[in-house]
Nucleic acid binder design. Structure first.
Length: 569
DNA sequence: CTGGGGAGGGGGCCC
DNA sequence: GGGGCCCCCTCCCCA
């Protein structure tokens, strides 16, 4: 019995030993697994940290670039300030101030003649005073060095506005300036920097105690920038230089394009080496996904105030593209996108242009008309809606009911406009249907198309105030400034900037009049002329003189009448 | 002086 | 990105 008990004890002891060994082995295995996972986790953390550092570095490069650009502009402006004789004041807003909302005439006043590469001090420039109420002027300041390096490109374009100006941009400037944030120097043209072809686009606000400038992304950047301006980069402290980073990006090229606006009204995923991809959701039909992560968007979102008060500038300036301008010959790289052509591109980060109207006033007119015909539009217009958007809640994805409402309203507005146009070969509901119910294979096209609806016009001309939703339109527009008219008529000596103009002109020679009146035998070479002619039959006289009540079929007739009868310019 | 046609300039937008 | 079309605006000219 004793022997049996002894054997049992030994057996239990052996079992305990085996279990201990097994337990130790299990613990070791678990520890090994934990260590492996921990190593992987650490690796992932390290990679994330590297990515964060890279992004931070990219941000710092942008900040430094802004500072350099501002310093350059300050220097230029000081130089130009000593040359008042080179200032030319042009009223480019004649039409708008007359309520015509059209800039054509104004443009013609200062578009340099073909063959003249630059405006010179001794070159006569028509100064069209236009209306006495005109309160906007453009000052073209010639830059000798820039002219030498880049003939044919005006160096500085200043816009002056008087105190009566109601331009929201101006209002924002006043608002910003009132708190004494910005120094009384030049504005920021984001990518203008020392470069042979560099141009400075200065938006100067006059009529205020101090020339009010652009807002800063944040106060820290402002402080560094101001020190930079006063001391220059070499005088900066080492930590500041380190913080701003080296000049990884070369100075911005000379620019005729200002890529106005804030791509981050919704997030534009166009980074890295990958293709420009807009992660706009699965629905390609005008899908719209916006992301804004405050954690990953450190550019002063906390400084955002309230877009409803007109702080779009601050807003956009804090979220401008983190892209880096680069110039490779004639290829300008912006945010990993390349734009070929003579006209380089420039980021202008100072504000977002959510433009519902445009210079010709057509869309503004449409908006007014919509107000007249549909009072509800007044409270649901894109303008109102944009103002009402919460600047912090930038998510405009389908889940955002407010944003959905916004787009519904904008789309309705556009639809109304299309209906107002009516009758066009491609106008009407079918066109609108094509706008939004058909998919876009290319995400970039989605983005471009979305601009149609939300009115964002990120491409801005550096030589005038015009903004465009598409880069191609900007390029086309710049022929207005360059005077380039590459299309010539073989039957006469006329030249045109566009093929369509030439094609239309050639009807003069061919006698083709494809537009016929259904009420009479009249035929016309242009649809617009037919439309005007139709008023003869309808007796439509929509333009009434506010002074005598006389009505006219055309606005021009009313204007002439007012000029001659009432001495109203 | 006004009405009306001819024609060019230029922006919006789609393909 | 460029082409093309649509549309609006304006100027010019003439009856």
């Amino acid at each position: 019995m004793a022997t049996c008990n002894s054997n049992v004890m030994i057996f239990h002891t052996q079992i305990a030993s085996v279990m201990e060994v097994l337990a130790n082995a299990a613990v070791a295995e678990i520890c090994k697994l934990v260590d492996d996972d921990y190593a992987v986790f650490r690796l992932e953390i390290t990679q994330s940290q590297k990515e964060n550092r890279a992004l931070r570095r990219k941000l710092q490069l942008i900040e430094l670039k802004v500072a350099r650009e501002r310093a350059e502009r300050t220097t230029r402006e000081r130089v130009f300030a000593s040359r008042p004789s080179s200032v030319k004041i042009l009223d480019r807003y004649r039409g708008m101030t007359r309520g015509e909302g059209h800039l054509t005439g104004g443009h013609r006043s200062f578009v340099k003649p073909t063959g003249h590469e630059t405006w010179r001090d001794d070159q006569p420039i028509a100064i069209d005073e236009g209306s006495g109420t005109s309160n906007q002027h453009v000052i073209l300041i010639e830059s000798a060095d820039a002219k030498a390096a880049s003939p044919g490109r005006s160096s500085l374009v200043k816009q002056e506005r008087t105190e009566g100006e109601e331009d929201p941009r101006h209002s924002r400037d006043i608002q910003i300036g009132a708190v004494g944030v910005a120094p009384p120097v030049a504005t920021e043209d984001f990518a203008s920097a020392p470069h042979p072809r560099a141009q400075c686009s200065i938006t100067e606000v006059s009529g205020t105690p101090n020339a009010i400038l652009k807002s800063e992304k944040d106060t820290e950047t402002l402080a560094v920038t101001q020190r930079f301006l006063h001391t220059g980069p070499d005088q900066m402290s080492a930590p500041e230089r380190l913080e701003l980073g080296p000049l990884g990006c070369p100075p911005a090229p000379g620019s005729e394009y200002l890529l106005y606006g804030n791509p981050s009204l919704r997030t534009v995923h166009s980074h890295g080496d990958s293709d420009d991809v807009l992660e706009t959701g699965n629905d390609p039909s005008c899908s719209y996904t916006a992301e804004m992560d405050p954690v990953n968007m450190p550019l002063g979102l906390e400084t955002q105030t309230d877009l409803s008060r007109g702080d779009w500038k601050q807003y956009s300036s804090s979220v401008y593209s983190e892209g880096c301008l680069d110039k490779k010959g004639e290829v300008i790289v912006i945010d990993e996108r390349t734009v070929k052509g003579e006209a380089p591109l420039t980021w202008n980060v100072d504000e977002t242009h959510v433009v519902v109207g445009h210079s010709q006033g057509r869309d503004f007119l449409d908006y007014r008309e919509s107000l007249e015909t549909n009072p509800n539009v007044a409270s649901h217009s894109p303008l109102h809606t944009l103002r009402d958007l919460n600047p912090v809640s930038t998510s405009m994805g389908p889940s955002d009911s407010q944003s959905r409402d916004f787009f519904d309203q904008v789309l309705n507005s556009k639809d109304q406009r299309a209906k107002a146009r009516g009758g066009g070969a491609t106008s009407g509901n079918s066109k609108e249907k094509r706008f939004c119910n058909e998919g876009f294979n290319c995400p970039q096209k989605v983005e471009i198309h979305q601009r149609v609806h939300i009115g964002v016009k990120p491409f801005s001309c550096t030589q005038c105030h015009m903004h465009f939703a598409e880069a191609g339109n900007l390029k086309r527009h710049q022929r207005v400034h360059t005077g380039e008219k590459p299309f010539s008529c073989v039957q006469c000596h006329m030249h045109f900037a566009r093929t369509g103009d030439l094609k239309r002109h050639q009807r003069v020679h061919t006698g083709e009049k494809p537009f016929s009146c259904t009420q009479c035998h009249m035929r016309f070479a242009q649809a617009g002329n037919l439309k005007m002619h139709l008023k003869v039959h309808t007796g439509e006289r929509p333009f009434a003189c506010p002074h005598c009540g006389k009505r006219f079929s055309e606005r021009r007739c009313l204007r002439i009448h007012q000029q001659k009868k009432h001495s109203i310019l």
